[in-house]
Write a protein that binds this DNA or RNA. Structure first.
Lengths: 214, 214
DNA sequence: ATTTTATCTTGACAGTCGTCAAGGAAAAAT
DNA sequence: ATTTTTCCTTGACGACTGTCAAGATAAAAT
């Protein structure tokens, strides 16, 4: 669920050849570089992120990228896929443990607030890359896949919430994702603009909305 | 409602001085350049749009921009404000003329389809610039203003739709905007990806959703 | 210990970028 | 008709970009 989606197309690497073989140093370094890239992208945005800038957030120099990636586009695509694997299960723990509507609501709101507070830069990157996919074909497939995964995640929360109230969600999966995603994006902007009311207002919105739609 | 929001800070221009004074050639040229810039931005996206590229979509050369704008940022901010004025009243005609829920729904859906079909490049630019505002302080104020104007526009539609059914909107203005904006962005991506079902599916979603929320 | 392979750095390449100064061209004022 | 002002082009600047070849360094294999 995490690593298999991030293949390392190179030679015939990491066959189950022997016990002492360095299992996949190549892939490990790709991940290491991707993490440096994500950090830089989250800080500067897609338009201003250069390979040399990424390299300064790692322990390597700028030339290393063409050893591990064919070009900048492939690096960023790899980043997008890697980022996906870390995101789409964020709320599953809450869904699995909550036994009542109130508990699920409370757990969801708490995680939502944590996310927007602690990971704002990484999420603005997500919105940036999704916008880039409107222009750059190479990004579309991976971005659409993440979008679908996030939609499924929201659907799991909402349908469980409905189930705990002996109801069914009132709107489609797509509309559900749209409204939560839209609200998140909106209050992320306000939060980054320095509005201290952004997070509490956001949580109030969600608290009022969720019982209506599910 | 259109021009006053786009001031031309330069000297003491266009005082009601005389009859033969060229009323505001300076502002007119700024608008002309902004239109070339918007065309280029819609085509290439923020990250790949250069002043030289914009100039090639106009009848001037790249040096002209520093005569009319202090720098690239100011040019793009001006574009954003100019773009706003053209967008926020798009559906007002429909709201003003429709006398029944069905007529309002039909008019809304038709304009919505036209918009995503005929103005996809300009709208992907909007999502791009909104994402840029998450990184670039200079954009935030103008982007937030557009967001608020669009939210008010959606609210006018939905509350009129509710009124025609002797109801009131079931969710907040912010949530309403979020869901329509989120759906629009989603199906814009699919439409640009070449999915021929994108627009009809989008309209079906909206048709099912609007009666639920208003 | 020596050879071979894997990994990373360095430095340069051909472009592109925003910016700006100098001056030509056009328009307006005199 | 001449001067003055406005408008726009040209060409250059320093900085930055992705890319890549050549070679240094480190690791592994022999």
């Amino acid at each position: 669920m995490t690593v298999e989606t991030i293949e390392a197309p190179r030679k015939a690497r990491a066959g189950a050849k022997g016990p002492r073989v360095p299992v996949d140093k190549f892939s490990a370094r790709r991940v290491e570089l991707a993490e440096a890239a994500l950090e830089t992208l989250a800080e500067l945005g897609y338009a201003r992120t250069s390979l040399r800038e990424i390299a300064q957030n790692s322990k390597f120099t700028h030339g290393v990228f063409h050893y591990y990636f064919s070009d900048k586009i492939e690096l960023i695509c790899f980043c997008v896929r890697y980022y996906k694997a870390k995101c789409v299960t964020r709320y599953d723990q809450v869904v699995a443990t909550a036994q009542t509507r109130d508990a699920l609501m409370a757990g969801f709101l708490e995680k939502l607030g944590d996310t927007i507070r602690d990971e704002a830069p990484m999420h603005r990157l997500w919105y940036d890359l999704r916008a880039q996919s409107l222009f750059e074909d190479a990004f579309r497939e991976d971005v659409a896949a993440i979008d679908n995964s996030l939609e499924a995640m929201i659907w799991r929360i909402a349908s469980r919430f409905a189930e705990l109230g002996h109801k069914k969600p009132a709107v489609s999966s797509g509309a559900l994702y749209a409204v939560f995603d839209g609200l998140f994006q909106r209050y992320l902007l306000r939060h980054l603009s320095g509005d201290p009311q952004a997070i509490p207002t956001f949580l109030d919105e969600v608290k009022a909305l969720l019982p209506i739609v599910a």
